[in-house]
Every structure is written in structure tokens, then in C-alpha cells.
Write a protein that binds this DNA or RNA. Structure first.
Lengths: 220, 220
DNA sequence: TGGTAAGTGGAGAGGATCGTCCACTTAACC
DNA sequence: GGTTAAGTGGACGATCCTCTCCACTTACCA
């Protein structure tokens, strides 16, 4: 089945060069300014016309998917590393810190993770793997008694969404804010002082993420 | 100086009725769907034409300002109540819970608080009063030894931004998520287990807020 | 009751963005 | 070199939003 060029094989030399430049430029712009960079701006910075851009990536979504595919992979490997750590609690903490750091460092990544692209199968699969890995990590960390017992797996969604909320202003500010928030929350997650029990009823990460994309509800 | 009708005095009877209906409808729509409800939708729901809407509120910003003026007042009075509490720590906690609850209950309020409107003098003044009140509350709560000493006044900004991040999906979900996040954070703010010291360098609430409005930076 | 200024609605100007079309250019292979 | 299909650019259509304009209507007071 050679019908899926998927990445960039079988392109003419100049076309491939253009494609690579587009992805590279898009990655930079998304990181700096978030996902709402106009397609025209990306094309302009890449030194191509919009048509070229749209020929490679029929929709903006597909471009975003391509651009963040490896970021999501990195995210998964962070979780894998954490699972490999002999101390689950330490693994849990570092995983949280790393992922939130990635979110803070790359505005686009944060948005992409949170925005979820329904038909971006690859991204979704990667994301789910990461989520499941985290769930496992959570289980183990609880077993050691360091992570509070009433920590819900969906509290991870809470954490990521809260983290995305503090990402504003300059990259430096965002990082500082994120780090401080994460430190606070990790301290709250420790089993030791779990004295009062916070209200339950968290949210399902997948649902929340998938809901975000729904803007087309113009209706009445 | 009778040149500032300001609210609605001196309007013809029918005009006043329309104005009131507009504000009422806008409040409801903003609460449900956030601030990006189109002006046309507001006009339609209020049963008037866009021109009528724009005659009363020359800009969308001015409508938002009017709509949330009393919400901001309520916010200030929450802080005042907290200051009146003989137990500063309890006051601190309830104030945080209430304000975050308001943010979660009214999507528009959250956005308005975070978005900041440069020329909405009234809102800004109210907001600053609330911020200063909170700073005072923080000082007192620290003095009792219940609030950790390294809590920065700007951690309030962190809290509000994180809270705005978890507000998505249905109103019920948003409220549950907000409550849980606030519980976690308040627990992290307690002096008792302040064992590790989180990184510093938080953000200034006013700066952050005022920066948000800058979208007009098209440049390059 | 009638004059008039205040009030009104809806079309549309102006601007931004996603995505398409099509005549032109160029890499790649014979 | 020449043929040709892949590749390209920029104008353009479609949509959505804020805000303006202007001819028409109506509340209010004498």
C-alpha cells in the first residue's frame, strides 16, 4: 500500500524542501504565538504562497497535527521514563514537572494538547497512551503511600488545564508561573497533609479535550 | 455637569426599557457562553436591532463593562467580608473560594476579570481595590501562622489564572473542577507542610491582566 | 393634535481568516 | 533539449465579526 505518502516521501526535491521549511516555520510560530497564527503568516514566513501550504496540509488542523506529532511522542516518552523510575512518587513528580514545562515552553503545544483534534488519529493515540501511562504511574505512586489516596486520575486533567491557564505573557513569565503552580500542586498531592478531603467530581480528560474543538455551535 | 447620562437617566421610556433588556440579555449570554458572543446575537435576543445596541454601548467593551460592573462590586465586597472575619486564615480561604466560585459560575465574569479592559476605569478601580484588599488579607493570614510565609501576593494571580484554566465544559463541570482545584491549592498554601520551597518569580496581576487585551499586535 | 428630536432597524462598509482556483513555472526523466 | 506532470503563487470566494449610516418611526410636550 504505497498510497499514503504520509510524511514527505515521493515529493519532488523542491517541494520537499518547501514542506520542511513550512513545518519548521510553523513550529516556531506556534510555539511563540499559539495556534491562532494565520495560515497566510506561516506561508509568508516560509517564503511560499498559501496554495503551497494548503497543498501539503489541506487544513490547518493537519498542519498542527504534523507539527506537534513529535512533541506528543516526547510527552509519551516522558511518561515511559517516569514508569521506569524505581521510585514511583519521584517518577510521578518529574513527569508532571516535565510535561507542564513543555506546555509552558511551547504555547502551541499547550493549546494543541488541550484543544484536541478529533481526526488527528496519531495525536489522539499518543495522547491516550500518555494518559494511560499516567494512570499507571498514579496507581504505583499511591501504592508507595506518598501520593494521597483520594487523588483521582482525572486530577491530571485538572492539573494540565490549570497549568494552561497560567501560561500568558512572555515565555519566561509563563515558565516561572507554571513552575510555581506545579510546585504548589505537587505539594498538595502529597499524602502527608491530606487532612481535609477536597470535593470530588473531576472531569474526564478525553471528554474535556474533545469538547474544546466544538466552536461551530452557532445555533440560535 | 449634566452631560453624563452614564447609566440610563434621561432616556425616553421605551429606550430605557430596551437598554435594560439589552443588559439583562447580555449578562445571561456572557455567563453562558463567555465574552465572544457576537453583538448581533445579543441584539437579536433582546429583540432590538444592532444599531440600538451600538447607540447605547458604542463599543462591545463598554457593554461588557456595564454588564460586569456589579459583579466586580460583589467581588470587592467578598474581600471586605473576608477582612471583617476575626480569623484571617478562614477569611482568606472563604474569599478565595467565593471569588473562584464566581469565576466558575459565570464564564463571562472569569473572562472579564482576566481580560481587563484598559479604558474601563470603573472596573479597573474596583479590581485594584479587590487586589489591595487581598494583599492585606494575605498579610494578616500570614501573621496568624496559618498561611505559609513564602506565599507571594502575586500567587493570587496564579490562582485566578489557574482557575480560569479549568473552566470549560458545562457549568456543573466547571464548578466541580474549580472547587477541587481551589481545595488542592488552599491545602498547598497552609503553613504546616510548607516543606519544600517552590520557585519564586510570580507575575504581577495588573500587568498580566492588562497584557491580555493586546491582540492588535499584527506586526510582521 | 401635531411638531420634533430622540429612537430604531437593517443593510453594508471594513477587516480578518480559512480555504479554493487556475494560469503559470519548473524539476525530472527520456 | 523537450515534454509533462508536479508544483507554485496570488487573487478570490465565503464566512464571521465589529461598528456605521441613513431613511423611517414614535414618544413626549405644548
Amino acid at each position: 500500500m504505497p498510497a499514503l505518502p504520509e510524511t514527505a516521501v515521493g515529493l519532488r526535491a523542491d517541494a520537499r524542501q518547501n514542506r520542511d521549511r513550512i513545518v519548521e516555520v510553523a513550529r516556531r510560530l506556534f510555539a511563540d504565538r499559539g495556534l491562532d497564527v494565520p495560515m497566510a503568516a506561516i506561508a509568508r514566513h516560509a517564503g511560499v504562497g498559501v496554495a503551497t501550504l494548503y497543498r501539503r496540509f489541506p487544513t490547518k488542523e493537519s498542519l498542527v497535527t504534523e507539527v506537534f506529532a513529535d512533541q506528543f511522542e516526547a510527552c509519551v516518552s516522558v511518561v515511559d521514563d517516569a514508569l521506569a523510575d524505581p521510585d514511583p512518587w519521584r517518577g510521578f513528580c518529574t513527569a508532571v514537572e516535565k510535561v507542564c514545562g513543555m506546555q509552558a515552553a511551547d504555547r502551541g503545544f499547550g493549546a494543541a494538547f488541550v484543544a484536541a483534534f478529533p481526526d488527528a488519529v496519531d495525536i489522539e493515540r499518543e495522547r491516550d497512551r500518555a494518559i494511560q501511562g499516567f494512570a499507571e504511574l498514579t496507581r504505583r505512586a499511591k501504592a508507595t503511600g506518598r501520593l494521597r489516596a483520594d487523588f483521582a486520575p482525572d486530577d491530571l486533567a485538572l492539573l494540565l488545564m490549570a497549568n494552561s491557564g497560567v501560561i500568558t505573557g512572555s515565555a519566561g513569565e509563563a515558565m516561572a508561573a507554571s513552575r510555581r503552580l506545579v510546585a504548589y500542586l505537587l505539594s498538595a498531592f502529597r499524602a502527608e497533609q491530606a487532612e481535609p478531603l477536597p470535593p470530588p467530581a473531576p472531569l474526564d480528560l478525553r471528554d474535556v479535550l474533545n469538547a474544546r474543538i466544538r466552536d461551530g455551535v452557532r445555533k440560535e
